[in-house]
């Protein structure tokens, strides 16, 4: 088999059956004419053949050119639709997975290291799958010679994004105030008016009463700072990056204040649970599960708040 034969075979193998004989005759003509021309000019035969085939280039590229096949996965017609859909789906699906997977692990009673591992691994896997399948569908559409206008809506000015207001909304501030007020009331309420009592009438608060030596007063102070910051922001009327940094500090402090007693196993009042006889033999849940669940919710809210306030602060710049 000569080099030319191998080149022709390599090209034809990428073409549909009914195109092959036609392309083969043309290709042999093209290579033969070019080689003869070089030999006439004094180039040795073997060298001439090599040079010509090198100039013809990658057989797969040549075959794509013959078959009018695109040499890209997703072309400019579909790229934006692909990108928007991928980003949208990732934003919808991944947060749901990041909540559901640890919830499932927690219900199964897994340790926190296992939960962390399965959450990171599972979310990543779902993300990779999502990008892969969306890309596969778009690559198929690209090759199916479907017109882009049949699949995507043409762009009009109606699709321009809303110019979002950088000012602080009353709704945001009211929300913050209400959440802080309710949490404060709940903290005090569970201590002063506990819903369970021992046989001799002593109150049993939900949270470990020893937390009042430091953790709970500190939480109240942190919430007080957040409240003051929210009101100051409302009066100022717009977000600043300093608001964001303060928000990060407040959230980190809040999570840390809950995390320390949860790790030490003294967030919930063990005496209360002993008194009411729960968790009993009918459940696999432990008090520690409840504590870690609380921490997970507090941490999730804090992360969301940090991300959300970052967007608002950046928009205001």
């Amino acid at each position: 088999m000569t080099l030319t034969d191998r080149y022709v075979t390599a090209t034809l193998s990428r073409l549909a059956e009914d195109q092959r004989s036609d392309v083969e005759s043309q290709l042999r003509e093209a290579i033969g004419d070019a080689v003869d021309d070089r030999i006439d000019a004094g180039v040795p035969a073997g060298q001439a053949e090599r040079d010509v085939l090198n100039e013809m280039g990658d057989p797969e590229r040549l075959a794509a050119s013959y078959a009018d096949r695109s040499l890209f996965l997703i072309g400019p017609e579909y790229f934006l639709a692909w990108k928007r859909l991928t980003v949208l789906l990732l934003w919808i699906v991944l947060p749901i997975m990041a909540v559901l997977i640890p919830l499932g692990g927690w219900i199964d009673g897994d340790g926190w290291a296992t939960i962390l591992g399965t959450t990171v691994g599972g979310t990543l896997t779902v993300g990779v799958h999502l990008v892969f399948w969306v890309t596969l569908v778009f690559a198929a559409i690209e090759r199916g010679r479907v017109k882009a206008s049949d699949v995507t809506e043409p762009w009009t000015v109606d699709r321009l994004p809303e110019q979002r207001d950088a000012t602080v909304t009353w709704g945001d501030t009211a929300g913050t105030v209400v959440v802080i007020a309710l949490t404060t009331v709940a903290l005090v309420w569970q201590q002063l008016w506990p819903w369970a009592r021992t046989a001799d009438g002593e109150g049993l608060p939900l949270l470990d009463p020893s937390l009042w030596t430091f953790v709970l007063p500190a939480l109240l102070v942190v919430m007080g700072i957040e409240l003051a910051a929210a009101i100051a922001r409302q009066m100022r009327g717009h977000w600043t990056m300093r608001d964001w940094w303060l928000n990060v500090a407040v959230n980190v402090a809040g999570v840390a204040l809950v995390a320390v007693p949860v790790v030490g196993g003294e967030w919930l009042n063990r005496e209360l649970f002993a008194e009411i006889g729960w968790p009993d033999a009918a459940t696999d849940l432990t008090i520690a599960n409840l504590e870690w669940g609380t921490l997970a919710i507090v941490a999730a809210v804090a992360v969301w708040d940090i991300v959300d306030s970052y967007r608002k602060a950046r928009r205001a710049r």
Partner: peptide
């Protein structure tokens, strides 16, 4: 014009 452009063009 390169050969690998011209021949597919002629066919097209």
């Amino acid at each position: 014009v390169e050969a690998n452009t011209l021949y597919p063009l002629l066919r097209r």
